[in-house]
């Protein structure tokens, strides 16, 4: 037989471990520049605190039950918002990806939810739902559903005609075609949408907490600012950034488990 096996994975391995070196190196460089700037320029710690001080405060946060309670509030709102955004985004995307007239009908309204400044909605949500968790969840959901929706639609539309022919020729029902073909074809796209969506969900939650409420990292940020604790402000920002990374990579990890066949799972 003249046929041979192709293994495209090896090629990607060369650059795979590069970030393990470059990322720490660049972070260290950045911190060094920051450190020497604060030492040499004599800038007020109210404007720019030294990295060592920020580190101290952040480590202190890790031992503070109050900070963890705020973190938990933010994580809960984010996950709930993300969950609802995903629920609406995926199910709506699967439907309008297959039904053209519905897509045309709903499109202006879907775009409207995105072009309206979400920050302007928050006071309205506060009026409707109070200062609790609900308005934050809602903002997170509104922000995260859009990339998930558009990617799902793209995923359903990108089903190859030849694959549909196969399902027809093996006598598949509509439901079987939907489950075995449309859904599975859309999955890599959905996960891409989720990666963007989860980051937007965090932003939505934090902005919501920032503008109204008494809990969460967004609220913590405001209270640090109001008491002129610039080092605390920096610590909260770093805390949020790490949280964002965790969410992003957790979503990315889905690739390995849900779409091991896809090229992106090995990148």
């Amino acid at each position: 037989m003249t046929d041979a096996i192709v293994t495209p994975v090896e090629r990607a391995n060369r650059t795979k471990y590069l970030p393990w070196i470059t990322t720490p190196a660049l972070v260290i460089l950045l911190v060094l520049v920051w450190h020497f700037y604060t030492v040499l320029s004599g800038i007020s710690p109210f404007i720019l605190p030294a990295p060592s001080k920020v580190w101290q405060v952040w480590v202190g946060m890790l031992y503070s039950p109050r900070a963890w309670s705020h973190t938990l509030t933010t994580v809960t709102s984010t996950l709930l918002g993300f969950f609802f955004g995903m629920l609406v985004g995926v199910s709506l995307g699967l439907v309008i990806g297959r039904i053209r007239w519905l897509e045309v009908t709903l499109n202006p309204f879907i775009v409207a939810t995105q072009v309206v400044p979400k920050v302007a909605l928050i006071p309205l949500f506060v009026v409707w739902f109070g200062f609790g968790m609900t308005p934050k969840v809602l903002v997170a959901a509104v922000l995260s559903f859009f990339p998930i929706l558009t990617n799902t639609v793209l995923g359903v539309k990108s089903v190859e005609a030849g694959h549909r022919d196969v399902m027809t020729s093996i006598n598949a029902t509509r439901l079987q075609t939907f489950l075995q073909l449309d859904l599975r074809n859309a999955l890599p796209y959905i996960i891409t949408g989720m990666e963007v969506g989860v980051v937007l969900a965090i932003i939505g939650t934090i902005v919501g907490e920032y503008l109204g409420g008494s809990a969460g990292l967004g609220y913590m940020l405001v209270s640090e600012m109001n008491s002129y604790q610039t080092d605390g402000l920096f610590a909260v920002i770093i805390h949020m950034t790490i949280l964002g990374f965790v969410f992003y990579f957790a979503t990315g990890l889905l690739r390995r488990f849900m779409i091991p066949w896809h090229q992106s799972a090995h990148a």
Binding site: E160, G162, H163, D165, V166, S169, Q180, L181, R184, N185, L187, I259, W261, H262
Partner: peptide, 11 residues
């Protein structure tokens, strides 16, 4: 049926 492309499902 067999088509010009194998049309195997990549997943």
């Amino acid at each position: 049926m067999v088509f010009q492309d194998a049309n195997l499902f990549p997943w």
